[in-house]
Nucleic acid binder design. Sequence first.
DNA 1: ATGAAAGCGCTAACAC
DNA 2: GTGTTAGCGCTTTCAT
Lengths: 352, 352
Amino acid sequence: MPAPRRPTLREVSAAAKVSLYTASRALGAHAGVAEETRRTVLKTAEDLGYVPNRLARSLKHADSHTLGVLTANNANLFYASLVKGVEKAVQPQGYDCFVADAFEDGVYDAARETRFVAALLEQRAAGIVLTYVPTAQNMRTLSDWRMPLVFVDCLPPEGFERFPSIATDSRLGSHAVGRHFAAHGYRSWAFVGHTPTWTSRFAREAGLREAAADCGAELAVIEGGNDSRTACAAMRAFLGARSRADWPRAVYASNEPLLNGALRALREQRVRIPEEMAIVGFDDFPWADLLDPPQTVVDQQIDELGRLAGSRMLAALEGVPDEGALRLLAAPVLRIRASCGGPVAGAAVSAG
Amino acid sequence: MPAPRRPTLREVSAAAKVSLYTASRALGAHAGVAEETRRTVLKTAEDLGYVPNRLARSLKHADSHTLGVLTANNANLFYASLVKGVEKAVQPQGYDCFVADAFEDGVYDAARETRFVAALLEQRAAGIVLTYVPTAQNMRTLSDWRMPLVFVDCLPPEGFERFPSIATDSRLGSHAVGRHFAAHGYRSWAFVGHTPTWTSRFAREAGLREAAADCGAELAVIEGGNDSRTACAAMRAFLGARSRADWPRAVYASNEPLLNGALRALREQRVRIPEEMAIVGFDDFPWADLLDPPQTVVDQQIDELGRLAGSRMLAALEGVPDEGALRLLAAPVLRIRASCGGPVAGAAVSAG
DNA sequence: ATGAAAGCGCTAACAC
DNA sequence: GTGTTAGCGCTTTCAT
């Protein structure tokens, strides 16, 4: 069964007995074609099963109308949701998203990233949404190419401050967590932070640290790495290194995988939550309220973040200036459930 | 800051003082070019910052070397993992994946699917991995086009049996769940099934039903819909419609979102698990063993499923015959944790 | 081993 | 309102 012939625009025009040009205009819904001619062309195209060749079109336009989204582990709900958000914003404008995940088996692969960057350039992507900071080399490549770039969930590196960024106001969210800890009377805290590769790490730590200073709480920092496994190991080591009496009264994990890992370590030690230790995580997720106790989290409404990034990209592509929106910060919401001791009378629920 | 000039192959060849042909051969790592000439060309390309235009290349080849993956809700871990698996298999062979998610806000959108199918044809995708059965119209379009197709997690619809498929042996997995129920002495079961749109639904029900017949258990069926929300509502309605004494002793949810919903409904009723009711779900997930009690599941090792689909697609593209592997069934594994009462002495742990 | 030239399918500037 | 024509950047015969 051989591949059927794929009719070209030229063939459609011949069959419709009009010129190539007319056929093109008719199908492209451009003006300057008699209504009847257009009808004929459309009909003929339909009959012939004509499917325009986007490759030719893009080649001509020197632009594929494709946006790259560089992510760091799609098997992570965070990135999956983020991508959905971006798509939601850009698809109505006719852009497709090409998702390039620089992680393989949960670990970052710089060579992989470089391959994706090259692929995006070769495809003549219209722009790229970056969800983390690529290597200096790749940043240079992209910048030299004048590729429109939007950073989400991270800040552009030094020298690239001209690119817009969208992020959650992590400091605000973390500060709210700290206030919540304080309202419960907890005075000894621990922060389980993700790899500093993500700049969000700093803001999340800073917000908590400020709150600690405000109320005179102690704050220990645990390097949680990149995923559940490393976070669990780090937490285990931390707990193992001191007597139970010296364990923190409240713990804050800086993202979902880290919360997962931290909880694992706590369970190994049969820590009672929240009686013995309170715990809050950054990022909401579908199982959070089904845990026992239901997990209190900072919800950054990820898909909205993605949507903002997509919109910002569209604006950049149309040459809209930043208008002071170069650094967009979205306010997260503290979702108080029970893992931290529940609501406190008189305390604000929103992080704002 | 104007866009910099993008050097073309022609310019590279001119700068290197060779012909277009030679430059093409040199960069394409083809034979028939003197080693020294090649070196010069490569150097020149590098210096000029030459980036090949894949659009032109693909146009020429009438194939974009892109594979489509049609999914049904990427915000769902299942599809995200599946895609990662497919990518893992095909990227080494130089194929890129274009992920088309026919779901928007968690609901299926046929028009959206049709747009994606069109986009894939326009892009001259090399093949498409289908994770669910598209509309009859779209199936026809794809088939008429002679698009190489591989079905994962579903079976080709009537008339399209010539296309290969990869799926988990749901019946096997479900049967193991039923045996596990039986081993615990549970005799009254309920199956919370996902929409019959997915053919896997039937196999999952059938396996359990067979096991029920084997041991004389009763089996109620609850239509759980497509997601956590609908499943929760369905479960709530089911429980509400009968006295607590008539509630099933063991429940089996046919996928992760449905398990989530079912658990929500059970929690509303303060059902004690597994003492009062045992529950098992299809699909493992990162929070399963952190639930209280840890959730027993059937693990279908999703990314492996994706990998198999990717490999099958590669084979199809190279014209490798099916060799009896037209219907590939991968064996799942029953991961016994505590939500079902834990292991039973003398019972097999694997589903195989 | 290398070069010249045709053409993939489409768009758009330019005539008529 | 419609036709002609020249490319977009690349691959690939066919000569040399």
